[in-house]
Design a protein around this nucleic acid. Structure first.
Length: 442
RNA sequence: GGUCCCAUCGUCUAACGGCUAGGACACCAGGUUUUCAUCCUGGAAAUCGGGGUUCGAUUCCCCGUGGGAUCACCA
């Protein structure tokens, strides 16, 4: 057992959960770091709840996240013969027997494993030695009938046949590990290495689930978190590099990951921290890629389309959106909260709002007049040159007294981006028109 | 309840048995170019309790307490 082989074994009974993804990620990092092989397999022995749709959703998520595997995907529902063979072997050797009548399959009998009732000890890579007395769970059921195997049997048969060397999974599997070890022993197989990861919990300290908000990959995707951000954040839940670094790409993680640095207490999921890490990664996106993401979140609504079609859209993205959001769904929030209202409609500022503190309106009027003449002279229409010219004038007088009325004249909004960016986006003509209008009110 | 796992700021976490227990997120205050945002600086904030072992415990051991997982013909 020198080659490292791990497995991705989701059961396609729902969308890929963030906890599953973290487990998959740790399997992935460990395997890629050590030059091993990853086997993908769907554990769909529960035919009632499994579906092909869920399989595809899981595969799509893995692909989006860049978590590739080397073999598979296999489907347990297509491997029944192997399980039946194992079942027969167990029965022949006296390790299993037919017991009471099956609930699910009338006329059939369930198969129980003959428990030797002994203490099982295994060495967990993360937690050390764990001992559990198998007497606790008696002769457990391993198949609904001679032809319908259950989870513990299928896992063991597959792991053995696929030569899985490391079973890396959630802490919730610790207590079922002894059953699987018993089955492996009865089948004459080699016991793999085990590593049980700490659980991801919600704010109520319970295993993360639907009641905690977004938990599936698709939900995170819809919120505008990107793969690089999700992977970076998830890697930090239960693992750390041993120093103060916090931002990593997937490749960097592969380089420094080790199961030895996985810790053993549960980690609470924090959307705030995810936001911070995601922000870092979306900032690193190229202009083009960033714009693509913004567009996918904008194009679903009327106002969003209008924004997209604006001639200065590229600059709006770079200058206004980029520094303000943590995840792309927030562009819609900006839109709904009126961040761009000044762009869609000519503002109608109240006279009072144009005034600044108790500065007399004559002074404000003088400033606006001067700003107008300065702007008329600007040949090179860029945010920087607008800023340079206006800022010079403002700082020679009173910064607030010049800039605040200018911003109100252009937007009539209490909150907005700075007046230089706004002027630039609006264009020289529109800027002058709005300034003239405001000036005429005073 | 039985069994098993776990225990450092609110949260994620660091600290060969040895500096004033470090960093990040969030929070608060101040500053930068008016508002929002960004950015910068600073601040508050933790070793669950009790016993041991030791010259010295966050760290090792025991007990307690607390939290969690699991006890299916689900996976």
């Amino acid at each position: 057992m020198d080659k490292i082989i791990t497995r991705f074994p989701p059961s396609p009974t729902g969308s890929l959960h963030i906890g599953n993804i973290r487990t998959l990620l740790f399997n992935y990092l460990f395997t890629r770091k050590n030059g091993g092989e990853i086997v993908m397999r769907f554990e769909d022995t529960d035919r009632e709840r499994s579906s092909k749709e869920h399989e595809q959703i899981a595969l799509d998520a893995l692909e989006a996240l860049g978590l590739d595997f080397d073999r598979g995907p296999f489907r347990q529902s297509e491997r029944t013969e192997k399980y039946i063979n194992a079942l027969n072997t167990l029965i022949e050797n006296g390790n299993a027997y037919e017991a009471e009548e099956s609930e699910g399959e009338s006329g059939e009998k369930v198969i129980r494993f003959k428990n030797p009732n002994k203490k099982i000890t295994f060495n967990d890579i993360i937690r050390g030695e764990i001992t559990i007395d198998s007497t606790d769970f008696g002769d457990f059921v391993i198949a609904r009938s001679k032809t319908n195997p259950l989870y513990h049997l299928t896992v063991v048969v597959d792991d053995l046949e696929m030569q899985v060397s490391h079973v890396i999974r959630g802490e919730d599997h610790i207590t079922s590990t002894p059953r699987q070890i018993l089955l492996i022993e009865a089948l004459g197989g080699e016991i793999p290495h085990y590593a049980h990861l700490p659980l991801i919990i919600g704010s109520d300290k319970k295993k993360l689930g639907k009641r905690h908000g977004a938990v599936t990959y698709q939900e995170f995707e819809e919120l505008g978190y990107i793969p690089a951000g999700i992977i970076n954040y998830l890697a930090l839940l239960g693992w750390n590099p041993g120093d103060d670094r916090e931002f990593f790409t997937k490749d960097e993680l592969i380089d420094i990951f080790s199961l030895e640095r996985v810790n053993n207490s549960p980690a609470m999921f924090s959307y705030e921290k995810l936001d911070a890490i995601n922000k870092y990664h979306i900032q690193k996106l190229s202009k083009e890629k960033y714009k693509e993401y913004v567009i996918t979140f904008l194009e679903k609504e009327e106002k969003g389309k209008e924004l997209m079609e604006h001639s200065a859209f590229d600059d709006i993205v770079d200058l206004i959106i980029r520094e303000r959001i943590h995840k792309f769904s927030e562009v819609r929030t900006l839109l709904h909260e009126g961040e761009f209202n000044w762009l869609f409609a000519t503002p109608k500022p109240e006279i009072d709002s144009l005034l600044y503190k108790d500065v007399p309106s004559e002074t404000i009027n003088k400033h606006l007049t001067h700003i107008i003449s300065l702007i008329e002279q600007i040949a090179d229409w860029t945010p920087d040159s607008i800023k340079e010219v206006i800022w010079k004038y403002a700082s020679e007088n009173n910064v607030g007294e010049v800039l605040a009325p200018m911003r109100m004249a252009l937007t009539a909004q209490k909150r907005s981006p700075d007046p230089f960016t706004i002027s630039f986006v609006l264009g020289k003509e529109e800027t002058l028109s709005r300034l003239n209008h405001a000036q005429s009110l005073l």
